[in-house]
């Protein structure tokens, strides 16, 4: 799974500006004859970016817990429950970020992801839709929204998303195809039907075409 690594150098800059703005009386001049009382710590307003980054950290924590669940099957239930809690917190953080900056499409995408992992596919798709309305080229959201479509059995929309990515971002397309194959395998393991088999045939064909058209010499998307 691809981890979106967002770096915000301006965060550091803004924090530094905030520190400079703190009155010197609060920092203590050291020139008085009697010791000043210890000043209360300055209250730092969290920005949309802070909430967004916090949400990403919580998501990462959830991933770590899921990994632990895989490694320690006897404690899997406990770890997965904890992971769910972290996804809930991540969703809350992203909602805060969106509240403060309604144009932050990355936060919508991360909210969509957290909701999808919590099983709220409809909420997830709504968040992705909102993010993509702001930045329609955001490939991460296109890919993950398609995975939410899979969760709801909206297969035609998932296929459309795949074709879109296949034309423009092969790495994302390949990831989505992998998720589609996983979905097929899971459905077949429980209760496969004709719809699943039709989709399985489509996935098999697209897998073959993906191999045939693999970009020679490409270690990444372009």
């Amino acid at each position: 799974m691809r981890i979106s690594r967002q770096t915000f150098s301006s965060a550091t800059v803004l924090s530094a500006i905030a520190l400079l703005a703190i009155p010197s009386s609060l920092l203590g001049s050291g020139g008085g004859s009697s010791p000043s009382p210890t000043p209360p710590p300055p209250v730092m307003e969290l920005t949309a970016r802070d909430h967004y980054e916090r949400g990403l950290k919580l998501r990462d924590k959830a991933w770590e817990l899921e990994e632990k669940a895989t490694k320690e099957p006897e404690k899997a239930e406990k770890y997965l429950k904890k992971a769910g809690k972290e996804f809930e917190k991540a969703a809350r953080s992203q909602r805060e970020a969106i509240k403060m900056d309604s144009r932050m499409y990355q936060a919508y995408s991360s909210l969509g992801y957290a909701l999808r992992r919590l099983g709220d596919y409809a909420g997830s798709i709504k968040a992705y839709d909102q993010g993509l309305a702001i930045e329609p080229r955001y490939a991460e959201a296109i890919e993950y929204r398609a995975e939410a479509y899979l969760g709801l059995g909206r297969l035609d929309e998932a296929k459309d998303a795949y074709m879109h990515l296949f034309r423009a971002d092969r790495a994302r397309a390949d990831e989505l195809l992998e998720a589609m194959q996983k979905w097929v395998d899971e459905k077949r393991a429980t209760a496969g039907d004709q719809m699943v088999e039709d989709f399985a045939a489509w996935v098999a064909e697209r897998t073959q075409l993906a191999v045939q058209t693999a970009m020679v010499g490409s270690g990444r998307t372009w």
Binding site: S4, Q6, T7, F8, S10, R49, Y52, D101, R103, M104, Y105, Q106, E135, R137, Y138, A139, E140, I142, H164, L165, A168, D169, R172, W222
Partner: peptide
């Protein structure tokens, strides 16, 4: 555009 980095976007035609 927001100060956040550019999306790993779908290539425009």
């Amino acid at each position: 555009r927001s100060e956040l980095e550019e999306p790993a976007s779908v290539q425009t035609m």
